[in-house]
Every structure is written in C-alpha cells, then in structure tokens.
Design a protein around this nucleic acid. Structure first.
Lengths: 151, 151
DNA sequence: GCTATGTATATCGCGCGCGATACAATCGCA
DNA sequence: TGCGATTGTATCGCGCGCGATATACATAGC
C-alpha cells in the first residue's frame, strides 16, 4: 500500500543527481573563475583541446548541449579570444571551431582541474570510473538507448 | 607522464554527472508538462507535500536551491494557484509556504512520476538506492562536509 | 530607547538550457 | 533544372542558478 506521506526529495535518485550536479558546479567555480570560464565553457574547451576544428553540431552531440545553447556560448568564447568560428568552404551552413593559441593554453590549464579536484576530495580513479559507469548507464537509459551493456 | 592529448569530457566524472542530470530533466519533462511544473518546481511541490508550511529558508536548505532562485519560483507557483505565501506573525521577515488544495493534488500526482519512471527504465529500488548513496556521498564531499561516512 | 549587527527574503544581471522558430544552404528527385 | 524537403546554425522567450546587492525586520549591546 502507498504510504500516506509523500517521499522526501532526498530519497529520490533524480534529486540526488540534480543536487550532486549543482554541487560539482559550485565546487568547480572558484577553479574556473581564474580561467574566465563557466562550467559548460570548460567542457567545450576540453572537447576542442581533445579535437580541434569540430563543427558546432559535433560539439552539440558530444556534450549533449543543444546548438541553440552552444551558439551564444561560442560567441562569448570567441569574444574572449579563446577560439575562432570559421564557415566551411564546401558547406556554408557548417561552422568549424578552432582554438586560438590563448585557447590552447586555457584548455591545458583546464585539464588539470578535474585531477586536482579528485585529489583534493580523496577520490581514486577506480571510484571515479565506477561512479562514471553508473551515470553513463543511467544516461543511456534515459536517452532511450536500448541498453548497450558494453561500450 | 601526462598524455599528450587532453581528456575527453566523456572520461570525466563531472561531465557524466552533468549529462545524466540533464538527461533526467529531459526525461521528466513530458511527465511534468501536464502538471504545469518545471523540475525544480516539482521538487518544491514534493517537499511541501512531505511537510507543509515550510519557510523559504527551510526549502532552500533542503533542496540546495538559493533563496534568490526560490523567491521568483514560489511566486510563479503562487500565480499558478499551487500554493500560498504567508508572512509569519511572530517574525515578519519569514514567509511560510502552504499548498493549496489544488497544490496538494498536484503534489500527489507528482509523487507517482519517479516510480513510473523507474519502472519504465527497469531500475530496481536497490539499484536506485545504491546510485543514490554514491551521489549523496559525492555531494557531501563537494559541499565540504568532513566525510560523515554514515548518515 | 537607539544604534549596530545579524537574519530572512527579494531584486537584478548574466549565463545557461531548451522549445519554438527562422533562415540560408544543401540535397533529393522528378 | 527546378522545387520541396532536409540540414546546420542562429535567434527569441522564459525559467532556472547564483553572485551581488537591497530591504525590512529582529536582536544585542550600550
């Protein structure tokens, strides 16, 4: 029988995900501020550092951020001198994103943040990987992927 | 030695948390739309359903949402007829939030969403609780709590 | 009582996050 | 070749999320 009282948000997986995500954002902020990056901007810089010259749509797919969110975000990063936006010659609808030299420096500095955060929290690689796998499985489930058990 | 290439966001715990959180939001949206609630509004309604008459600050603490986010959110819920805002008689700085009858109905309807979502995804209570505990520990770490192993 | 300090809530500004929409460039196909 | 459908990106509107700030109320100390 259904209990007479509603569940506390604390008892819900979705709330704990929501709260942990915001907690991560708050914890990263003091480390990202010196770089002049927001958290989603940090993700974009890392993705570009990993593979430069991606189109807007590729970034959108990889990060799960809609292009209508990315467009203004990329404009702000361009205005900050971190990247260039370059129309494709062969398909003028597409826009390729390239890091500037300053952007490359920023990306390398950004790379260290997760490491130092993990170290500061005392989280081992194994713990992180384990949680990460759980979250990835959950995300695939939510995204409607028909459960690809292995990756 | 540090690898010559930057890490993919995919390999980061923080990104997977970020992405899973947004995925949850997107998955909940079609279920919340009929109730006229956003996701944070859903959390507020559940919290009030669990304990009515909370002050703004209590909601803020419990949900980890700043009062500057809650104030306009509560005004929207009041405008939607889901709750009343009532100044305390004894301390006129405080505002207590009470669900309206319509709000109580909404809260009960909202309560079913997590259950049905879990069922649709094939997630058992044990799996949810296990992930939940991991996320809670992570959140406590990030919030600077000096690691209270048990709760 | 009267000022200083602290507390509870609210307002403002800016950057997401995303649905809806716009628009140009490309593609498909008769 | 031409024209409708599709694709890639951008714009708009609204609701968070949160730092900074405001404001009213309460409390403490004198």
């Amino acid at each position: 029988m259904t209990p007479p009282v509603l569940p506390k948000p604390e008892a819900l997986l979705c709330f704990n995900l929501y709260a942990a995500s915001h907690a991560f954002n708050r914890a990263y902020k003091p480390l990202l501020d010196p770089l002049g990056l927001t958290y989603p901007q940090f993700l974009v810089m890392l993705s570009l550092g990993q593979q430069d010259g991606q189109a807007v749509g590729q970034l959108s797919d990889d990060l799960g951020i809609e292009t209508n969110t990315l467009s203004p975000l990329l404009k702000r990063l361009e205005a900050a001198g971190q990247l260039r936006r370059e129309r494709s010659q062969t398909d003028e609808r597409r826009v390729f994103i390239h890091l500037t030299p300053a952007g490359i420096d920023t990306a390398f500095a950004a790379q260290r943040i997760p490491e130092s955060m993990a170290a500061a929290l005392g989280i081992t690689r194994d713990e992180a990987d384990s949680s990460l796998a759980t979250l990835r499985r959950l995300r695939d489930l939510l995204n409607g992927t028909p459960r690809p058990q292995i990756d």
